[in-house]
Nucleic acid binder design. Structure first.
Lengths: 215, 215
DNA sequence: CCCCTTGTCAAACAATCGTTTGAAACACGA
DNA sequence: TCGTGTTTCAAACGATTGTTTGACAAGGGG
């Protein structure tokens, strides 16, 4: 009866295998047979445990995206609870740090999560699972509110547009870009992740704060 | 004999249909039968004219990417020919404008090119066609040189990293992001492209110029 | 003992994919 | 008119996809 420990074992192995393969090759490029072979399970097991391939994708997404989202909400609410105007840098850190922390955890299983999340955006996916929409919408509202308090000069559209750019930068930083590596002759290949995260923070801070010299 | 006008007609229709469908749904999600049905041609025509589906993809990429690249090279060389230090904004415009100009051309056939180019990065594509690599490498070297002259304080790695972020922002600005639209409740849906391009320029300029307050 | 649930497995399912084939239809100079 | 090379087409190819089926084993509770 205790649901906490008696988690089905093959179910977990399927999730781990799927997460790794999806992060490496994308959703469409990985077949159920690739996943089940890696997990040492039968082809039918995916449909048994998750109903369909899409159900498996949704479950992999939820496994880590929801905790990251909750942490972001917590930190953004912390920035907004007082009357003080937060720094742009603080707002960006509030939704960059939770992602980075989860990626750099020692847990081997979570190492690929970053690249997996990079896949979510830009893929032909039908979207995120519907159960996640309210949580993500709430997080986004808090993000907009925090940025608008930090940058009172920006309109809502400008703020949203730049937030989208921040997400783009974070996503691109997590994924490997074969084309870019090729045409830069791999000069950037072996950079420590910490330096890249630092660059993400600097770039987004600078891009957000720019007041497009209207004077 | 005159190759200029006697361009095979179905060949052009295949390229047009492929460009539009790829821009809309991505490379893998579009089948040869989708393309040939749209173009009013036979399934075998793709393999006849382009050898394979990959050959078609490469041809679509080359059709517009090479002219954009040449224009970028021309403008970057213009910035570098003198001794003067170019503005960060000028460098960004030098490789943003050629793309925007081609997108906003009246020619209906080229309207979807932007979204198509967005697909190139991030997809599981094996990379760009090998014939394009030298031209792209040259353009990238010029870009790095121009930025390093505009921002002497940055190391090569920092410069490359931020250039990658600029590409990420441009790509994301060209593509629709269903997930983002959903969790922002489509507040940003109907923004004029000109405003978005302006935001891209502002954001990239600010992100590039930031000197990460090392003091 | 039987019954029912839960899980696994090999096998087959129908659908779709990119590609190939071989024969027609066409164009055009000799 | 013939011959030759180019282009189109219906049909089929083999491979792979996600999904379903039905049998089988293990595990308790009655």
């Amino acid at each position: 009866m205790s649901e906490s420990e008696m988690k089905n074992e093959t179910r977990e192995r399927l999730l781990d295998a799927a997460e790794g393969l999806f992060a490496e090759k994308g959703f469409e490029a990985v077949s159920l047979r690739d996943i089940t072979r890696t997990a040492g399970a039968n082809v039918a097991s995916v449909n048994y445990h998750f109903g369909s391939k899409e159900g498996l994708i949704n479950e992999v997404m939820k496994r880590h995206a929801l905790p990251v989202n909750e942490e972001r909400v917590r930190r953004l609410e912390g920035l907004l609870e007082g009357e003080a105007r937060p720094e742009v840098r603080e707002v960006i850190e509030a939704f960059l740090d939770p992602l980075i922390e989860r990626i750099t955890e020692a847990d081997e299983r979570r190492r690929l999560f970053g690249r997996f999340m990079g896949r979510v955006t830009g893929e032909e996916a039908k979207g995120i699972p519907s159960e996640m929409v309210p949580a993500f919408t709430k997080m986004m509202k808090l993000t907009v509110a925090a940025f608008q308090r930090a940058l009172p000069g920006l309109s809502t559209e400008e703020t949203l547009c730049r937030i989208k750019f921040c997400f783009a930068v974070m996503t691109q930083a997590l994924l490997r870009d074969e084309v870019f590596e090729q045409i830069t002759e791999r000069k950037l290949a072996a950079w420590e992740p910490e330096k890249i995260y630092q660059e993400v923070l600097v770039f987004c801070t600078g891009g957000m704060a720019e007041q497009e010299g209207k004077a």
